[in-house]
């Protein structure tokens, strides 16, 4: 896609925040597409002073009864992970 692109540094910053590695080609096409989407979104116009706080329309969440219930079976949950050992999820070493 030709036309304006989101600056490379900004795209890299957002990809880092999102914890997504991008190939060179992906980054190039996404920078153009994001710029075009953001231009469109900017058509929303400036913020209007709003007396009420904007909230998602979830309504009021009811409280659950305070009672013991079965949770998911631990082995069933662990069996779905890509790497486990001794009842734990395994990740690369954090402390060296």
């Amino acid at each position: 896609m030709s036309g304006p692109r989101v600056p490379r540094e900004q795209a890299e910053r957002v990809a880092r925040l999102a914890r997504i590695s991008l190939t060179f080609d992906e980054s190039a096409s996404l920078r153009g597409q994001l710029a075009s989407i953001l231009r469109y979104v900017n058509g929303l116009g400036p913020l209007e002073p709003a007396p009420e706080r904007a909230m998602p329309p979830a309504g009021s969440a009811p409280l659950r009864d305070d009672r013991v219930r079965d949770s998911l079976d631990r082995d069933a949950v662990l069996s779905r992970a890509p790497l486990v050992r001794g009842g734990h999820f395994i990740v690369p070493r954090v402390i060296r």
Partner: peptide, 10 residues
């Protein structure tokens, strides 16, 4: 999915 995650993160 990457496009949307990046847009939302931004």
């Amino acid at each position: 999915v990457k496009r949307r995650i990046l847009l939302g993160t931004f």
